[in-house]
Each structure stands twice: as structure tokens, then as C-alpha cells.
């Protein structure tokens, strides 16, 4: 009973965190009397924090990225231990939710890359589901080429940017 209570409490705290975060989509309308006929709006975004085990650099769970080859959405063998660790965490913490963000390098069409990033996020999700995580726990989305971790137009950067990132409740 006590075992169950801790994650429940945790999820309450996380829920509280996310609800106090600036997630409100209500637009801040800035009046602009410039005669351009265009009003300026500032978009807000959420920023939450995770839990200790997920951020401890000595814990494999602090690693969140699965990398891909060019124009590919096949998971490399070296990513298996990482995916297994996160699947175990999701199984043991059924209240935890995960958002998987797929990314691509900057070459080609933004919308096509958004679709390619989705495929990468989807294969990571599928792998986690096969290892016992539940469908309701995981959402897969794509950031396409929009959020490069590395900015230079080099092959090393392109490789760094072709990845899926696993984020937990409160981190997105």
C-alpha cells in the first residue's frame, strides 16, 4: 500500500508542477498602434523538472537520446540497453508518462523532416511497448529539423541531430 502511495504522491506533485507552469495558451495580446493592422502575441511554453533518478548522471535513465542513420528510422543495437532501462522504468512507474520527440538533420523540406522525425519517435515508442510499457503512457511527436542540438552544417552535427529524445512527465 505504501509502495503505491509514493508514486501517487509523486504524480500529484508533478501534476501540481505542470498546472502552475505557464502552459496557458491564452494569448497575450500586445496592442500595437503602428497602423500595420497586425497585433503582436507572445507565446508561452511549459518548463517543468523531472525526478532525481531521471537526472542523476550516474543513472542510465538520465540518458535520453536514441540516434539514427541518415534517412533511416532503424534503431541501432547500441541503443538497446538504454531503451530497455526506460521500458523498465515505465513498467515500474505506470503513472509516469513519456513524450518521445523525433528529430532530423537540417537538410531537405521542413515538413518532410517533421514526418521523418515522427517515424523515428514511433519506432522508439514501438520498442518501449514491446518491452512492456503501456500505450497510454507514451506519446510520440516530431520536432523535425526545428530543434537542432548542434548548429553547424557538418556531418558530425547532422548525426547528433538525427535522434529521438525521451522526456518524462513534468519535462514537457
Amino acid at each position: 500500500m505504501k509502495k503505491l502511495a509514493i508514486p501517487a504522491l509523486l504524480s500529484l506533485i508533478l501534476a501540481a508542477c505542470s498546472s502552475t507552469g505557464p502552459t496557458d495558451t491564452a494569448a497575450q495580446v500586445e496592442d500595437r498602434s503602428s497602423g500595420t493592422g497586425v497585433a503582436t502575441v507572445t507565446a508561452d511554453s511549459a518548463a517543468g523538472s523531472g525526478i532525481a533518478a531521471l537526472t542523476d548522471p550516474n543513472n542510465i535513465l538520465s540518458k535520453r537520446s536514441v540516434f539514427f542513420d541518415f534517412d533511416s528510422y532503424v534503431i541501432q543495437p547500441e541503443a538497446k540497453p538504454l531503451i530497455e532501462a526506460h521500458a523498465r522504468f515505465l513498467v515500474q512507474n505506470p503513472q509516469m508518462k513519456m513524450l518521445i520527440q523525433g528529430n532530423t538533420d537540417e537538410r531537405g523540406s521542413r515538413e518532410y523532416n517533421l514526418a521523418l522525425g515522427q517515424k523515428r519517435a514511433d519506432v522508439v515508442k514501438q520498442a518501449l511497448l514491446l518491452l512492456g510499457a503501456r500505450e497510454a503512457q507514451i506519446e510520440s511527436v516530431s520536432l523535425g529539423e526545428e530543434k537542432p542540438r548542434c548548429d553547424a552544417p557538418t556531418e558530425a552535427c547532422f548525426a547528433e541531430n538525427r535522434r529521438g529524445d525521451m522526456l518524462y512527465s513534468g519535462e514537457f
Binding site: 495558451t25 495580446v29 497586425v38 517533421l114 515522427q118
Partner: peptide, 26 residues
């Protein structure tokens, strides 16, 4: 802005925006 791609329709003169598509995924 909500950490995933969501479609908005934005009226330029007023700055009024509306989420028109926010389904699971992209």
C-alpha cells in the same frame, strides 16, 4: 510552443488565435 507541433489559426488584425488541430502526435 507546447513542445509539439500544433496547428493554430491566427487573425492578424486582432491577434486572436485558436488551436484548430491538437490531436495526439504531430
Amino acid at each position: 510552443e507546447q513542445k509539439k507541433p500544433i496547428i493554430y489559426v491566427h487573425t492578424l488584425a486582432t491577434g486572436q488565435r485558436r488551436v484548430v488541430s491538437n490531436f495526439k502526435g504531430s
